[in-house]
Amino acid sequence: MGKGARLFLGLWMALLIVVSYRVPMMREGFMDPEGYRIVFYHVPAAWTMGLALLLAGIFGGLYLATRKPRWDLHAATAVELGFLFGMVATVTGSIFSRNQWGAFWNWDPRQTSILALLLLYLAYLALRASVEEEERRARFSAVYTLVAVVPMLFLFAFMPRMTPSLHPEKAPLITGSQWLVLLGMWLGYLGLYAWLHRLRVTAFACEAQVLSLRWQREE
């Protein structure tokens, strides 16, 4: 990501942060109407998590098809970042839950499904850490990310809608200009994701080159 794009992202997010606290919110039906503004941070984080984990599956598939190590790095990066954005969604969701429902954690279907999702990808990170041989690790990881897309989509998109939930699903309690703020914020999150993704892949590539140099010296 070039300098100009990074500067634009910084200003865009600053602008959206200000707008997110200025846009009028509905007041009926909320224990804490002002606290509902957290939706502008929570929802884009959850969407970015879903997209990152879907990308991880695609990168895993590309690795299996081509056996090029760079796809393995992209997949691992996408999972790490998906996990990070998932944590942001969970924490902001818990704050929302505390303000509107009275407790940080209610075992609501949406809360339970995101916890299961995070555990699913925590297992992926544990799998990567446990296999030393590079090619095997990449192959196992790729199969995992590809197969995990099915439970991920189920937990992310279907399961919470199949059971009664406190979580706003079918009729989101946002309208008109609030949608614009939400989508603008998501664009900002996507920019942030792209920046972090590039940084992490570059760091992974550096690690690989340093390891390769070390082996050459040992030989």
Binding site: M1, R6, W195, L199, T202, A203, A205, C206, Q209, V210, S212, L213
Partner: peptide
């Protein structure tokens, strides 16, 4: 970003 970019260039040169 600045540090990672510099490190990447240095590692590439060494490599």
């Amino acid at each position: 970003d600045k540090r990672v970019s510099r490190l990447s260039r240095e590692v590439e040169t060494l490599h």
